[in-house]
């Protein structure tokens, strides 16, 4: 408790000094101030990832809703997220699928612990400088975003088995800001891939830690060695790759059928079938929305009507199995 209080005190001192230098106005300052009486030390827990056969891997979570950094993270995320979403959603594409075009699915395995805090702050700053017309985002200067980011990143602590830990890379994945920061970092990192792909009119898409790209410029070996050079240049981003003429990507199975794009729904073979996503709160409402969006997704994903019908029946059966009427 003493350590936690000291940490809160040092955070508030930094905020106060920002206010005194007129970097923060009084309202924002009082909104970000950390209230030691309600702050709780976050704890670490794990959930099993059962997607690999014969192996349990672990997904770490940090319960962070009452942490000292919560308010700053909420503020920064609401500031950065709309801008980041706008910038990173740019897609370069010309439809030039050939019969020999290979598909590649990449999964970044350390998405929430990409780099040390200093480098993360530098990357966010570089990203903002490059994409903002002025040095401000919604009246907040880049320097000030860096200051707040510094307070946030260096004060994320948690406990696990009677010891208090601090994060040296990344931030708690339970905070939306963690996603936003990783998104910025990977956006900057992926530029070196895009540079090459754009030369050859390839397709590139990314959702969080998962990337899909096409490769018409050579064989599997050449794509492999290209990705190896990316790995060597930026060892901080760790990833697994899958290269073939058909790959699963997110929930889709994407195939190159002699130059024609074919896709259908892909379901992970180890995930139990006919189950609804786990929801808390208004489960009935959420599951009803889920059915609607799952049907829309099926329309978008399925190249053939037969595949769509199979998926529709599967989704309807899932609802019935779980006690819902259609």
């Amino acid at each position: 408790q003493t350590e936690l209080n000291q940490m809160v005190e040092s955070m508030n001192l930094l905020l106060e000094s920002l206010k005194n230098h007129e970097s923060l106005n009084v309202d924002l300052y009082s909104g970000l101030l950390v209230d030691a009486s309600i702050v709780k030390l976050p704890y670490l827990y794990f959930l099993p990832d059962v997607s690999k056969e014969n192996e349990i891997s672990l997904v770490p979570y940090i319960a962070s809703q009452h942490s000292a950094t919560w308010r700053i993270s909420k503020y920064l995320n609401e500031l950065l997220r709309p801008f980041v979403d706008k910038i990173v959603s740019t897609v370069f594409t010309k439809r030039e699928l050939q019969s020999t075009t290979l598909f590649c699915a990449i999964k970044i395995t350390n998405y929430h612990k990409l780099d040390i805090h200093k480098n993360m702050i530098d990357t966010v700053s570089y990203f903002l400088e490059e994409n903002l017309i002025t040095n401000k985002l919604e009246q907040v200067t880049i320097q000030n975003i860096k200051n707040l980011l510094h307070i946030f990143l260096y004060n994320n602590v948690f406990y696990y088995k009677d010891q208090i830990y601090t994060l040296t890379k990344g931030s708690p994945n339970t905070m939306p800001l963690a996603d936003t920061l990783s998104n910025i970092y990977v956006f900057v990192w992926q530029k070196q891939i895009l540079k090459q792909l754009q030369l050859n009119n390839e397709f590139f898409g990314r959702y969080k830690d998962q990337i899909f790209l096409t490769w018409s410029n050579g064989n599997e070996e050449q794509l492999g060695s290209f990705l190896q050079t990316i790995r060597d240049k930026s060892p901080n981003v760790q990833f697994q790759k899958l290269i073939a003429s058909s790959v699963p990507f997110l929930n889709a199975f994407v195939q190159n059928q002699n130059g024609d794009l074919f896709s259908r729904i892909h379901r992970h073979p180890l995930i139990q079938g006919y189950s609804l996503p786990y929801e808390v709160g208004h489960a009935k409402l959420v599951h009803s929305d889920w059915l609607r969006s799952a049907l829309i997704r099926a329309v978008c994903y399925c190249s053939s009507v037969e595949d769509f019908n199979l998926e529709r029946i599967y989704l309807e059966l899932t609802c019935l199995t779980n006690g819902y009427s259609l």
Binding site: E3, L58, K161, T168, K169
Partner: peptide, 25 residues
Amino acid sequence: LGNCQEFETKAYDYVSKSDAYKVLL
């Protein structure tokens, strides 16, 4: 979960071997 003991051990290994965490106290 299958084997809870294995899960516990893996969790401990995860924390002690991860380069993202450092003991503060």
